[in-house]
Design a binder for these strands. Structure first.
Lengths: 346, 346
DNA sequence: ATTAGCACTCACCCTTGAGGAGTGCTAATT
DNA sequence: AATTAGCACTCCTCAAGGGTGAGTGCTAAT
């Protein structure tokens, strides 16, 4: 969006949004002059506001009400008015460090905690998505005999994700068979991403089944089955807190948001659509392709492992959120996670 | 509660509750005679209702309104009026079988699915709690070297619960050390419950540290650390659906219930308090020791593994729920799970 | 270019009053 | 003695009406 506003208009837009973030009532011209000590009279402000409305940055709920920011207004605010220097949120960093660093846990635990911490500091919803199969590098695969006719497959990746699955031991593999298969799989696939392994397996099996000896064939079949269900986990926390916000005094909105939370599938879809660039991204209201979230804003960022985007961390809240502090929270959390995985992967 | 009512009063109480379950408006005398084709006039019904109110089974929101069942009324209804023959819900059984049986999954997946299915059939909240450390029997413990200085501990229990934890390898154990330790732990503790092992470990370590050789000491320390976090998982699903009920048109109630859902700790406490007898239990409104749930009813049942209560399955809903069908759903789910673990444990 | 003045709009809140569902009581009926 | 009809009474619900006030847009003065 081009930077089309003069300084004075920017200030007014800023004041309106600031006031609206503070308190979701339509903002009047008189209030702006008083609260933000403008040098102009309410009448002048009214003219400016009328211009801003013409340009689509503000709107009126009804003729004789004050103005409310539009999505376009928020967008302009985020891009051109907000302070560029978004700092690191030290409080969040301290909290995360104290919560997560001491006992070394797996990724799901860390992400759940991060999501909760983001939720509690922002008072909105915390969101975290674990690394998907695309970028996760296999560290180790372990086959453990389990009960008479089953095998527990445990997959460990570089990020510390542990997935497990119990599969049927239809081929009656013995304990030592399993040992051999594990060794083979580890030798063959360690260091590849889950996605690569999947593709590789699909191809191998298609190409020529007879090419390999029996044990190897079994290994591949096992591995395929275990990797089949490998996907991202989504953590969304903080519903209770968000219900205190005045915009959720309306049942319909609560329903929408709780549906969004339960249907984590939609979130993954959203994230797939959105994650192309790195850094913190801001999705405001109707910019969101998921229509259920058109009344919400989403601030997300990828976090990296070895400079490769792994998963996503973010905050979901009302459109009138305190963008600068939320962006700083998300930025901080993303850096924290990236650093954590950097260290962990050494 | 004693069976203190004559047939006629029972019928009236039944009619009031039935009507109230159908539609949460206070029930009037005229409505009862019409809808349920009573042989008496509204005036007679009024007299009976006044008696029921004196006994505490009904109450009036205000002088000129109809009656509403009290918790005591529901309790009497459940104990003395409800059909005793609670059948198995075939639809649920079919659904569960199709969802859960085919791929052999671990307990957490099965419980999550069961909870979702209960939620969708009842239109209330589905609840499932995985087996805790008390009764879970260790099947296998596996130590896998993970990255340079860490070990992944994987614990498999009889029910198919898999817990994993990553711990620091502070003692610089080699891969073959780990192998030896696993072997030792499996030999020593297989067949014991997690709780027993915990207690055993605590005692061993307290008694005499020098009594054992170095490796064994290390094993025990590792094992202790890994078992430390072993606890029940709680699955609660179906929030979206429950918001459609008229009793949750009130924000305060939504807040309460969402708090209850997020604070799974409270649920575990509730369940600990309540689970003394087997079979389906009904907790109505204020009977619930957790005060946040005083406007809700909870129907729960334990499910067994080898005739030993393992975890809990249930439904949480408004007090005016259709008790007979909900009880039947919970009963069916509990039997299904018990059977599933019976087979799985063979 | 800015501002004061003013008529106008419209949501919000409060009051009022009609309507109606339901009750309790009493007296009549079976 | 139990049941029922009749009736006065209660009190919730809802819609209509009117006052209030915040806020606007326009015009004319500064």
């Amino acid at each position: 969006m081009e930077d089309v506003l003069d300084e004075r208009s920017k200030k007014v837009l800023w004041a309106v949004i600031q006031s609206y973030i503070d308190n979701p009532d339509p903002v009047g011209s008189r209030y702006v002059t008083k609260k933000y000590a403008f040098q102009y009279s309410p009448a002048t402000i009214r003219n400016i506001m009328a211009d801003l409305e013409d340009m689509g940055f503000l709107s009126q709920p009804h003729t004789s009400a004050g103005r409310v920011p539009t999505d376009k207004g928020y967008r302009y605010y985020v891009e051109h008015i907000l302070e560029e220097k978004i700092g690191i949120n030290e409080g969040l960093l301290d909290l995360l460090t104290s919560k997560v660093s001491d006992p070394i846990e797996d990724v799901d635990f860390i992400l759940d905690e991060t999501s909760k911490t983001l939720a509690s500091l922002s008072r909105y919803l915390g969101l975290a998505v674990s690394p998907g199969p695309e970028g996760s590098i296999l560290r180790r695969i372990e086959l453990v005999p389990y009960k008479e006719d089953r095998i527990a497959v445990v997959i460990l990746t570089d990020e510390g994700v542990i997935k497990h699955k119990i599969i049927k031991n239809e081929m009656a593999l013995t304990s030592s068979d399993l040992q051999k298969i594990s060794n083979y799989l580890n030798r063959e696939f360690k260091g590849y991403t889950i996605k690569q392994i999947r593709e590789h397996l699909a191809e191998e099996l298609r190409r020529d089944k007879e090419m390999y000896d029996n044990l190897m064939e079994r290994s591949l079949a096992l591995c395929r089955e275990a990797l089949y269900t490998y996907g991202s986990n989504v953590f969304i926390t903080g519903l209770t807190r968000i219900l205190d916000l005045p915009e959720f005094s309306n049942i319909e909105k609560i329903k929408k948001i709780s549906k969004t939370i339960e249907d984590k599938h939609a979130i993954i879809k959203l994230i797939d659509k959105i994650i192309d660039s790195r850094g913190v991204q801001v999705i405001i209201g109707s910019e969101n392709p998921v229509s259920e979230m058109n009344e919400l804003s989403v601030i997300i960022s990828t976090y990296n492992e070895h400079d490769r985007p792994a998963g996503v961390i973010g905050i979901i809240g009302p459109k009138r959120m305190d963008y600068s502090s939320v962006i700083s929270l998300v930025e901080t959390a993303a850096r924290f996670l990236s650093k954590m995985f950097e260290e962990g992967g050494k």
